[in-house]
Amino acid sequence: MMSFETVMFVILATLTGGSSVAVVLSRQMVRAAVWLLITLIGVSGLYFYLGAEFLGATQLIVYVGGTLVLVVFGVMLTEPGKTERVTVGPTGWCLAGFLSASMFFLLVLVMLNSGKSSSPAVDKATEWPGVGPIGLAFLGLPQSPNQPGYLLPFELISVHLLVVLIGAAYLARAKRKPASEAGGTVVRVEPVPDAGEGESL
């Protein structure tokens, strides 16, 4: 007898899993980005299902509304040329299949053998930290006598974000085009031929 939770879980899981498979299989980047979008929404749904509302909202705002938009922008700005074919041959697919299959298999094996018992039904109302406790923890409220708050990680990631901002802005700055009479093109470097064993002594 399937309960409501089970059904919800199955729907969300199918959504997420299916769209992630679609991400892998889609050839065009824009489509992959869209399927990623669906996957992220699915994951966010799962967060809500688990009761972490704040986290689900954060996922939607940051990941979907920030990171994914960034990815789409990147896809559009770096379009491959019309004649370029960027695909992986059969060897790549075999390797990828082997890797992912074995990885999945082993992960499941390890996880299921770790033998942690868990209680399926948890009282949602009591003791589930919501936004308030999370916020207070981030601001340094001690959680237990031996456990200070999470102020330091909070500050660290703030600084980290600042650094990333500056770094990304610098890296992706618009470069001055060299002024040249004949065409004024950006210096192009020819794509290096696939020389896996270059020996340039």
Binding site: L99, S102, L106, V110
Partner: peptide
């Protein structure tokens, strides 16, 4: 990436064996 993945697979395999 391929080598990295294979290495991780190997390590996980060892972990699985050990845990068993």
């Amino acid at each position: 990436v391929a080598i990295l993945g294979l290495t991780v697979v190997g390590m996980l395999g060892m972990l699985a064996i050990l845990m068993r």
